[in-house]
Design a protein around this nucleic acid. Structure first.
Lengths: 191, 191
DNA sequence: CGAATTAGGAACCGATCAGTCAACAATCTG
DNA sequence: CAGATTGTTGACTGATCGGTTCCTAATTCG
């Protein structure tokens, strides 16, 4: 009961995610949020409690969306090697299209490494990425798509690490030739 | 002529670097700087102009120190492969010892991707890292230490990218087993 | 010495920060 | 309808932001 909310929570979190993604936590003011979300200050605080909590929701949404996306692509892949290459090249495209934005997960890891809740969320998501890759690689190994003596988990940890490096180099304005080449060399570990 | 400065500029930049490294640009206030540098506000502004300019000096110092360090290690190496492994494992140690600090270069790339001066400094330093690696790898190739059909530049771009990923995973609190393993798999591209 | 020059320092500046509050509006239950 | 409950709003809060100003202190040069 009580007066019904006049704005959509999901849409608001989506817009907050966009702002934090582009500007970071510290550089995004509550005034920025009020403007972009199109609601009054008081409503924002009643609905979300604090800037910190809204950030946590935005980050969680980003993590869920991207972890799920990765799992889906890898699970549905006929062949694992081209699927992984496609995933990496898609990240390259994203970085080239919008280098200032980069990856919210990487931004969170670097800007907010002193905040346990953020670090935990980041760490958990990295684990999901690793597991998705490890699952796909293990399938590939059993199928004979990659050499039987390769450890799926080890390859997955390497790829997870390399993937974060790609996002950083994208922000550092590396060009397509650089990033594409890095991906090709990285794919070589599967041979 | 005029009154001589009572503090050491180099020491001040060093302390500023430490603060920005640990906290980032936005989260470091001028008050933090005044306290840590042990000089008055007015003196800080007279000596450095603005928070931005002091940050630029701190970042430049970090870049020079680390790029030079990398070049020296690689140039003096008897064998390139163990030297590169040592460089990567040293970064792993640094991340494990102080995960909140991470790498100022990566922090700068992610937090300040909207600031051209910072991006340019970051990009230039990444280029130096790539060149140092490429030089060492080319020597190794000529000497027969790595296969003759490997392109030094391509391997160097891959390693530069992977290296940034290591720093991110360190901030995301990956453990030694994870990071060491990632390094070992990455080293495999030289085989 | 005295003029010129530069550094040091504290008070001060308007702007902006994250967050609160009280009055009002809209809904549900009875 | 009345009362309870919850959402909306914008003015307001004290704190802090990055930066400036102005006066004093220390030095060099003539």
């Amino acid at each position: 009961m009580g007066r019904p909310r006049t704005f959509d929570i999901d849409t608001a979190v989506e817009r907050a995610m966009e702002l934090f993604w582009r500007q970071g936590f510290e550089a995004t003011s509550t005034e920025d949020l009020v403007e972009s979300l199109g609601i009054a200050r008081g409503s924002l605080y009643k609905a979300f409690g604090s800037k910190e909590q809204l950030y946590a929701l935005a980050l969680r949404r980003y993590c869920e969306r991207h972890a799920v996306g990765l799992v889906e692509v890898l699970d549905q892949a006929e062949q694992v090697r081209p699927a992984i290459r496609a995933v990496l090249l898609e990240l390259v495209e994203a970085d080239l299209a919008d280098p200032e934005r980069g990856c919210l997960l990487v931004n969170a890891a670097t800007e907010r490494s002193a905040h346990p809740n953020t670090v935990q969320q980041v760490s958990r998501t990295m684990g999901q990425v690793e597991s998705a890759l490890a699952g796909a690689l293990e399938r590939a190994r059993v199928r004979g798509e990659i050499a039987a003596d390769k450890e799926a988990r080890e390859l997955a940890q390497f790829l997870t690490t390399f993937l974060q490096g790609l996002r950083v180099m994208g922000k550092a304005r590396a060009d397509r030739a650089f990033l594409d080449n890095a991906v090709e060399v990285a794919m070589g570990v599967l041979d």
